[in-house]
Design a protein around this nucleic acid. Structure first.
Lengths: 257, 257
DNA sequence: TTGCGAACCATACAGTTGTTTGAAACTGTG
DNA sequence: CACAGTTTCAAACAACTGTATGGTTCGCAA
């Protein structure tokens, strides 16, 4: 039907097959694929999906203009592959509860969540693509956002809700936990999203060098807000006091059939 | 040199001249200008500057394709005009300290700031362009962002800093005030910026209907964070205890020469 | 009416976009 | 070497973009 290698298979399948065929250095096809994803990650992060051009990506990857269509079946599929790759890399390097385990007190896990989130957003180099791409997806969604929310965001949001639920006590309402979770996520996202404005407002500050200080501030600020939440008033969301709280409406990331 | 009416004059000048010529219903030129800005506001907010097309804007405005170049001198100038218009309208409707005056306690002014900010971001209809356009400018800046920061954001940020300074006491450091201001702004921006994600995570919630509840939560959450800030530790920013604190580095909005 | 400038219009233009195509180069295998 | 499959390549394609152009219509004063 169409040219190119196994366009109907998942990227994982392709990767495994390529590794089987040539486990040492990777086949020529896999090498080009890798270079394309690398270059596309840069260009998509810099200019966004629509503004990025195939020619620029292929130029930076040292590949022919037709390579994207041959290896990925089109710009859109390349973009989806980049998004998956960036997400995997950034979460490999900065797991959601970095340097903690579930037995640590919730304050410590919240601190780790915030720090890891900030690192994912602000760390320089390759994992930073994820943050920039996520911000772009929010401001100007593509069809890839559905997959992103389903496979990644929902689960992380639920994990944060779990920690908050422990901190706020069993009487905390679902509604209140959600609002507090969003206040925390908002602060972490802010330093990536508002970067162009921050740069102009306070030049040279609040970048990747200051992640620790920012994490410290956001944690302290938020813990105070959490502890002050007197949640004994009316609850519009119901389900108050549930031991395991599903904070979002979608399925948890590890519940896929 | 170029066609079109008074392209070298400011929009205000054009408006005044048009009003002089035809004070009742506006000249034909002013009517078309108005329709173009209206349509362009919609399209720019929906699709962003680069993705929006002149043809779509003119089509929606019932104008010819050449109208944009004739009346504004190009797509970029039209966009700048739309940004100015949207900013003016949204701040006319929702002033920064809505329903308060400087003698009110700082808690009340903070609440008003947050509520007004949220209304500007989430209110439906025409003033909502401003919020969407601002988010787009952050995610994908155009040359218009410089003007936006200089003429609007800097001043509002300083005003918020003033309120926070009153709340935190004279020993609060510039650095600490800045961080707290950003935590508050972040929460307000979040519900506009993350709308596509929120829609998928918790469908039908946290939109324009819930501004009052959101303002209530953000105010309470942030006041707790502010009051917990024990700011007697080291200060990296200097200028601690200044009576009038210029939180940003740029000029205040009302200090223009 | 005539004259004149402002406003509008259909059309054309040059540039860029993602994608397609058919052939060439390369790869490993018999 | 010969051959088949994979990968790369230059060129072309159709669609779409912002802008420019030259002529037409409109509003109004003399």
């Amino acid at each position: 039907m169409s040219a190119g290698p196994a366009l109907d298979a998942t990227p994982e399948t392709i990767g495994a097959a390529a590794a089987d065929q040539n486990s040492a250095a990777g086949s020529s096809s896999a090498q080009t694929r890798e270079r394309l994803i690398e270059a596309a990650g840069q260009v998509f992060a810099e200019r966004g999906f629509r503004q990025a051009t195939i020619r620029q990506i292929c130029n930076r990857a040292g590949a022919n203009i037709a390579a994207v269509n041959y290896h990925f079946g089109g710009k859109r599929h390349l973009y989806a592959a980049v998004l998956r790759d960036a997400h995997r890399r950034s979460h490999d390097e900065f797991p959601i509860f970095l340097d903690t385990d579930p037995t640590d007190p919730p304050e410590e896990r919240l601190r780790a969540f915030i720090r890891s989130f900030l690192l994912r957003m602000l760390a320089p180099g390759r994992p930073a693509w994820h943050g920039r791409l996520m911000i772009r997806e929010m401001a100007d969604p593509t069809p890839a956002l559905d997959e992103l929310v389903r496979d990644s965001i929902t689960g992380h949001f639920a994990d944060l809700g779990q920690v908050l639920h422990e901190l706020m006590g069993p009487q905390a309402s679902l509604e209140s936990v959600r609002l507090h979770a969003m206040s925390i996520v908002a602060q972490c996202l802010f330093y990536r999203m508002a970067r162009p404005v921050i740069e102009r407002l306070v030049p040279g500050r609040y970048g990747s060098d200051e992640v620790e200080a920012l994490a410290q501030h956001i944690t302290a600020f938020s813990l105070a807000g959490i502890r002050a939440s007197d949640d004994t008033k009316g609850d519009a969301g119901g389900a108050s006091g549930a031991s395991k709280m599903d904070i979002g409406s979608a399925r948890h990331r590890s519940d896929q059939p």
